[in-house]
Amino acid sequence: MKAAVIVFPGSNCDRDVAVALTRVVGVAPAMIWHQAATVPDVDLIVLPGGFSHGDYLRSGAMAARAPIMRAVAERAAAGVRVLGICNGFQVLTEAGLLPGALMRNAGLKFICRSVRLRVETADSAFTGGYRTGQEIALPIAHADGNFFADDDTLKRLEGEGQVAFRYLSNPNGSAHDIAGVFNRTRTVLGLMPHPERVMEPDHGGTDGEALFKGLMAALG
């Protein structure tokens, strides 16, 4: 599996996800600066966590208009897997690659803690390393993770199996306890929790590893 990590000004989990990918894949991903016009020929594109452009205007809003995002959208349309973690999820919604929006947490504060999640479907390249219905623990670290979509969109997300992960105890007010969503073809995933932070026992958990291992298994 070849992977690329997009680096925006203010990304700060780019190194962490690169370390996680390298650990699982054995090869370091390409790190692509936001002003590049093209993405190398890869199987997986990752938009990392952080505060792209300082979260100014709206989280992810400016990064979604970066030069590289045109190329990301083209690749996504061609079926290349795209993973957005935390701020990466926010960028994907702002770019229209995923439905919904991430609003300020219901409690109005930044929250950093481990949360319990249920894997809603194992039937995707991203979640193939888990079992459907499996309960896992991943950390969240965000102020804008309150997933919102209108009723019709939520109905569609539920009906078409686009909900990837659900909070067991909703930390941020997200609609339908949604922690992560797919696009219709399940080739694009955005999630607020950070799988790259729980990859080894020293992290206090290893539930993030299966996400990257599943991708490796699906994409080779």
Partner: peptide
Amino acid sequence: IWEQYDSQVGADTI
């Protein structure tokens, strides 16, 4: 207090 701080970014906090 400390749940308002990202204590893990860098993935080296053990």
